[in-house]
């Protein structure tokens, strides 16, 4: 049951997608998590609920609306058209954007929990030692929240690898562009190529197990996992 070139292409595409999405999520998710952990604004619960939506929504619902928003009639679609970027649906870029939304809560929540567990005190201490708020953030808050960031990165990566519904809605099934692992497995099963499906599916099971095992062994992830889901 050697993997076909299309299979390998799907594996590579999936890893590329998950890495890029994880990186973007850490950049986007950290300020959101920081804000959610520290704000006293009444908007806190609203934003928190919006961020958490992908946890409860069927991925097809999320994919459907993203498709509409990014499509020719949607505001984002018209914007990308106007900027000469073309349209996002059925492209790798579209897949990246959709995945960022889809995996956002899995990155924001562990980081937010880590910031909240740390409390205000370390930052106050930093301020009494002449550190500006930015220095306090980079030299105290980020290092202290490190376990949260590790959990967030692993969960964000793994969750992106495992997405299916959103990919189908927004990316379709284009080899080399949007045909990721989960979709390729579906293709094999449709074509009754069970051996091929096994190759990829078993690989994915092993991968997920190793990731979670590493997470639990490194420690610090148990609480965050429990709280995030």
């Amino acid at each position: 049951m050697a993997l076909t070139p299309d299979d390998w292409s799907a594996v590579w595409l999936t890893l590329k997608l998950a890495s890029l999405v994880t990186l973007l999520l850490l950049i986007v998710g950290t300020p959101i998590a920081w804000w959610l952990a520290r704000t006293r604004s009444r908007l806190r619960n609203v934003i928190g609920a919006v961020v958490a939506l992908p946890i409860v929504l069927p991925p097809t619902v999320l994919g459907f609306y993203l498709l509409i928003v990014m499509g020719p009639q949607g505001p984002v679609g018209q914007l990308t058209d106007a900027l000469g970027l073309g349209r996002l649906p059925f492209t790798f870029a579209g897949l990246v954007v959709a995945s960022v939304f889809y995996s956002l809560p899995f990155v924001v929540q562990p980081i937010q929990n880590a910031f909240m567990a740390m409390g205000e005190r370390p930052l106050e201490v930093a301020a009494t030692l002449r550190a500006s708020p930015w220095e306090g953030f980079f030299h105290v808050a980020l290092p202290l929240a490190r376990p949260g960031f590790i959990t967030a990165a692993v969960l964000g990566f793994a969750h992106t690898v495992g997405e299916f519904g959103v990919v189908l809605m927004i990316g379709g099934n284009i080899p080399g562009k949007t045909q990721v692992l989960s979709v390729q497995i579906y293709n094999h099963v449709e074509a009754i190529e069970y051996a091929q499906a096994h190759g990829l599916a078993a690989g994915l099971v092993a991968f997920s197990f190793v990731v979670l095992l590493a997470l639990y062994t490194l420690g610090g992830a148990r609480n965050t996992l429990g709280a995030g889901q």
Binding site: R121, E124, A127, T128, L129, A131, S132
Partner: peptide
């Protein structure tokens, strides 16, 4: 003046050392 611009030292009630830094790095922080 925000706290970090006031030339003060503050010792908190409970131990407030930075857990991710050694004693030396804690002392050098300020």
């Amino acid at each position: 003046l925000p706290t970090h611009q006031r030339p003060l030292g503050y010792v908190f009630q409970e131990a407030s050392l930075f857990a991710h830094l050694s004693v030396r790095a804690n002392l050098e922080f300020g």
